[in-house]
Amino acid sequence: MKFSISHRTEYVYTAAALESFSELRCHPQNCIRQTVLSHEMILSPSVPIYFYTDYFGNKTSFFSIPFKHNRLIVETKSIVLTHPYPDPLGGVNLSVSEALIIYGFERFELFDFLLPSKYISLLSETKELSSKIFQREKPLIEALLELNQFIHQFLSYAPGTTDISTSVSDLLKLRKGVCQDYSHLMIAVLRSTGIPARYVSGYIEPIKEESSLKQPIGVATHAWVEVYLPNKKWVGFDPTNNTVEGEYHIQIAVGRDYDDVAPLRGIFKGYHGQELNVAIQVERV
């Protein structure tokens, strides 16, 4: 499927910012699932943009505005072709305990995705959940799908109830959240089990007949989870929609949690206070 994505972020400062420095992670990645046909980034005020690849392999752009400015507009326009990925979960006929043994051999390489991170702490509650779902003899894929469904049912989608800093323990009490919280909770359970899992940020096209969406989520960026399977493949699970990553998911960045993949991170010097406007459009072309 071919998607045209436009993402516009606008910061309006209450008083002119004297200088600012920003880092962006909103560049769709070329990978086995998708091909980026074109990508364009427009800045206002216009300054040169630089790139680097971060620790997790994400293409990251950054720029500094060393003069007074009242607003900052970042607009990206991309055309991405997503490829069908038939049967992503096929060929893994291992039980949870067998999979864990295999993960043990790659512990060094996968270590980052087994550890607690800034927003994902491993708690006794997540341990309990993991032991309930990931019984040792159960087939791994079955358990993963069960977890995906469990998280989907456990939390109810309620924008505005949580924010970036909502912890996993708060989520367990609140039982409400957005895609980011669904993903954080699922990763916490997976890592408590010892299964390597990472956070994916991206876009999604809301297709009602394919997903069991309660409301459209095409208005904002989306987040889901990738699990490392014993066949050395990262496979995406979307607990918000209770699906496996499909053709309508467009990946931007991967990391340990939201902190590693925040779409725009920056600082400015000036008076406190700013207004943020975000407009995202994902359209099939």
Binding site: E40, I42, L43, S46, V47, I49
Partner: peptide, 15 residues
């Protein structure tokens, strides 16, 4: 002290 930094104008297209 540093308002006079000249920055090239124009649109920066990547890739």
């Amino acid at each position: 002290t540093y308002e006079h930094v000249a920055v090239d104008e124009g649109k920066y297209v990547t890739d």
